[in-house]
Design a protein around this nucleic acid. Structure first.
Length: 824
DNA sequence: ATCGAGTATAA
DNA sequence: GTTGCTACTCGAT
């Protein structure tokens, strides 16, 4: 009887037609001696719960449920086993029947009849995927080494062996950390910017894999071709060879960058036209596509396909904070090297001409695949941490949302509470929930001006600690005030009220969040000794994300544990903590200049020292409940707050600070926004720097004047007047057409297909009429409307900075006009 | 002058 | 399939 250890890479379930369509768990993985295996575990049964009104109903209901025989097409649906357990459901002790079935699909049929039975209150956990249920109940998890005993069977899987397991056990703490990976990228022939799969062929595909594997396939030969470039006779042969190469390489992960959204859908369209199947599955099945909202996914049975773009965009973007997440931008940031310099827009021309230039594009293609591979390598520790936290397979984790993260973590940790989970809401419930709004955070109204010696404090993980300390949870929400935390007064559905959370027992969220925060604190301690450890870093980051997602999850309409009261209570406590902190600071004669959600800014301004501020910090921390902590976020010799447009009050969420290392931190200004021209952003940045660092307003005025003159002369580099905005819907769906929509129409007219999510870059030119009417695609612009850029871009970007230091816009303009008049 | 739509960012 | 808050421009009225 074969016995070996292996790392599961994907876990899913199938039904076995030879055993009455009963559910079978299927694990594809890699053995410790590097073989590919498929392990089938038929021993695990699907089940769900029925919550019933009283214990005395158990016997009769059990009989009634077991007697159910429902006729479905080609099968009889029935329960195989019913057992009674006392469980917890949202904080209540309940009587529950665990109802097992043969075919996982039977759950959906049975539950409708069972919930109508007298004595049954509701059916729940009817929508948990069998594979997820399996990992939770057995502890067999993706990437965790496990040992299997069983019989080798013949099944048509493309693996070294297929085993039907008799014993399957998880080994402790051994994770697959070095998967065999293959990254790929395709290049398409296209004259206009967005390729059309009905016409434009795939001309190259590159692969880069573990062990320095590299290969480019193309279908036109050229002089000087390198030996890793293979030429085939046409596009059809290119696709066929690509599929063969992927199969024979046998990756644990097949990796792409935006391959869910582009490479695979494109390959599918082209292959379909040629009558080829993308049958990469280890069961010879085709790549499976699904579309939801505006994202698509491409999955391959047994061969996890990872779209690393999605993971970076959704999960890691919080720590990267880049303005753009193109492969080039992300690779430059994380690897120090981006794409090659080749202009992919000219690939079609090189292809038509033939010749040596094609070599540049083969190199470009290969480097794209290589960068994708390198990015995946960097992401592995982070990905592994999320796999451990959620128990989800890597391909799911790579496409995971925050809601899914929280929910998977909860489902995985419910046993310690003896709790059963609510079902996911139906669409109509989600719709009803969407109308609910809760009051958010407090933002301090700043006074415009320049401040000296600014100390910034913030609460460490404010919302997670509040949830934990005040036991905020759908399972502890209670009507009575006895033995309960009562929230500060808040507005809910238009009425003033408070909520109570019983503290007699730990809530699910509070307990799990406390564990997470404590674990994270421990890891951060370890990180102090071992600063660069990527695994520790990934671990603390994943815990941070998880803890921070809990508040958002409470208010998320698609959540199982949706709880608007909990979300409202969390922010109410947040406002209360900040208000009390401000009150205390003012009582201690500190000048509070700003605060937002979890932070306060104190201006020491000569009267107080940093030591005073630190004493204040210590005092505050002595009074805070354990887990909660105020931290010194930073000390800044100078800072500036500006006023809102139109009135004299200070603008919130908009300020700049300079630290002792002379680094300027700019928040909320146009400079850090993508939808302003380069000239406006650069000018604003420099003005802020001059004022904060040199403290020389005259110098700043001189600087702006120079910029205005240069702008007026028409000599700015054209890129400096590019403005970019994203299309968030189809061009015809707009009711109000801004300039970027009008420009998108021009692009369509010249044959391009700017779709949802594409960025439109344009230049405003001179002429009559609306700004939109005078805007043209950036690549068509040679000149710009100097007046527009002066009046609508540069001046607005700097005027309120000058106002904050007592300098009028008119002065700035007047000096500019005099000067320029003199010039003419 | 005012308002809604659209876009983007902070936390 | 995280939340809410603020600020701005453009175009319509």
């Amino acid at each position: 009887m074969p016995e070996f250890s292996f790392y599961p890479l994907s876990i899913d379930s199938i039904t076995d037609p030879e055993a009455g369509n009963s559910g079978v768990i299927r694990l594809f993985g890699r053995t410790t001696d590097n073989k590919r295996v498929c392990v089938l575990d038929p021993s695990f049964s699907a089940y769900f719960w029925a919550i019933i009104d009283k214990k005395s109903s158990v016997k009769s209901l059990t009989e009634e449920i077991l007697a159910l025989k429902l006729d479905e097409t080609k099968r009889i649906v029935h329960a195989t086993n019913v057992t009674y357990e006392e469980k917890q459901f949202l904080g209540e002790t309940v009587h529950a029947l665990k109802i097992a079935v043969n075919n996982p699909r039977d759950i959906n049929v049975l539950k409708d009849d069972i919930k109508e039975m007298t004595g049954v209150i509701k059916c729940t956990e009817t929508d948990i995927p069998l594979a997820q249920r399996y990992t939770v109940d057995t502890g067999i998890e993706p990437l965790q080494l496990c040992t299997v005993k069983g019989t080798a069977i013949k099944k048509d899987y493309i693996t070294d062996m297929t085993i039907e397991a008799t014993h399957l056990t998880a080994k402790e703490d051994s994770l697959l950390t070095q998967p065999r990976m293959l990254a790929f990228d395709i290049e398409v022939y296209n004259k206009i910017r967005s390729p059309n799969s009905d016409e434009d062929p795939i001309v190259m595909v590159a692969m880069y894999g573990t062990g320095n594997y590299k290969k480019v396939i193309t279908w036109k030969d050229y002089p000087g071709r390198k030996k890793h470039v293979t030429v085939v006779k046409n596009e059809e042969a290119l696709i066929a060879m690509f599929l063969d190469d992927v199969r024979s390489f046998g990756p644990d992960y097949l990796v792409g960058y935006y391959s869910d959204g582009f490479d695979f859908p494109y390959l599918k369209d082209r292959a379909h036209q040629m009558g080829i199947d993308l049958d990469l599955g280890l069961d010879e099945s085709n790549v499976r596509f699904s579309r939801r909202a505006n994202t698509s996914t491409a999955k391959i049975t047994g061969m996890p396909h990872m779209d690393i773009f999605k993971f970076i965009r959704r999960i890691v973007s919080g720590q990267l904070n880049l303005p753009s997440y193109t492969l080039d931008a992300v690779a430059k940031h994380l690897l120090g090297e981006g794409k090659t310099g080749a202009d992919v827009g000219q690939l079609y021309a090189a292809w038509d001409e033939g010749g040596e230039r094609l070599g540049e594009y083969a190199e470009y293609n290969l480097i794209d695949a290589k960068r994708t591979f390198q990015l995946m390598e960097i992401m592995i520790p982070q990905l592994n941490e999320f796999v451990k936290i959620t128990g989800l397979p890597p391909e799911e984790v790579s496409r995971m949302s925050y809601g899914r993260l929280v929910e998977s973590y909860l489902l995985k940790n419910l046993q310690q509470f003896n709790e059963i989970a609510p079902n996911r809401p139906y669409q109509n419930v989600i719709g009803a929930r969407d109308g609910d709004r809760v009051e958010g955070a407090f933002v301090f109204q700043p006074e415009p001006g320049v401040y000296e010696d600014v100390a910034v404090f913030d609460f460490k993980s404010l919302y997670p600690t509040i949830i934990s300390v005040h036991n905020i949870c759908p399972s502890t929400l209670t009507a009575g005030k006895k033995d309960a935390h009562t929230t500060p007064e808040l507005t809910f559905h238009g009425k003033k009220r408070t909520f109570n959370y019983n503290y007699k027992k730990d809530g699910i969220f509070p307990k799990l969040i406390r564990d997470i925060l404590i674990r994270r604190n421990r890891i951060k301690e370890m990180l102090k000794k071992n600063k660069k450890d990527p695994v520790l870093h990934a671990r603390q980051y994943s815990l941070k994300i998880l803890a921070n997602s809990a508040y958002g999850y409470f208010g998320f309409s698609g959540a199982r544990w949706y709880c608007k009261e909990c979300a409202a209570s969390t922010t109410a406590y947040g406002r209360d903590y900040i208000a009390k902190l401000i009150e205390k600071a003012e009582k201690e004669k500190f000048k509070v200049i700003y605060g937002d959600t979890d932070s306060i800014f104190l201006s020491l301004g000569g009267k107080k020292t940093l030591a005073n501020a630190k004493t204040f910090l210590d005092d505050v921390n002595k009074e805070l409940p354990s887990l909660m902590e105020l931290e010194l976020d930073g000390f800044y010799p100078r800072g500036i707050f500006v006023m809102k447009k139109g009135d004299k009050t200070g603008a919130k969420k908009k300020y700049a600070l300079i630290d002792e290392e002379h680094d300027v931190k700019i928040v909320g200004f146009e400079t850090v926004r993508g939808d302003w021209s380069g000239i406006a952003k650069d000018t604003q940045k420099e003005v802020l720097r001059i004022i904060l660092e040199d403290n020389d307003i005259k110098k700043a005025v001189r600087y702006v004047r120079d910029v205005l003159m240069k702008t007026e002369s028409g000599k700015l580099p054209i890129e400096q007047v590019h403005i970019s905005k994203k299309l968030t819907r189809g061009v015809d769906e707009y009711t109000a057409e801004g300039p970027h929509v009008k420009v998108a129409r021009q692009l369509i007219k010249r044959g391009e297909t700017p779709g949802i999510g594409s960025t439109i870059t344009y230049v405003v030119q001179e002429g009559k009429g609306s700004i939109g009417g005078r805007s043209v695609p950036a690549d068509e612009a040679e000149a710009y409307d100097a007046e527009y850029y002066i009046k609508n871009q540069i001046i607005p970007a700097v005027e309120r900075i000058f106002e904050a230091v007592g300098y009028k816009k008119e002065d700035l303009l007047a000096e500019h006009k005099q000067k320029s008049l003199g010039d003419f």
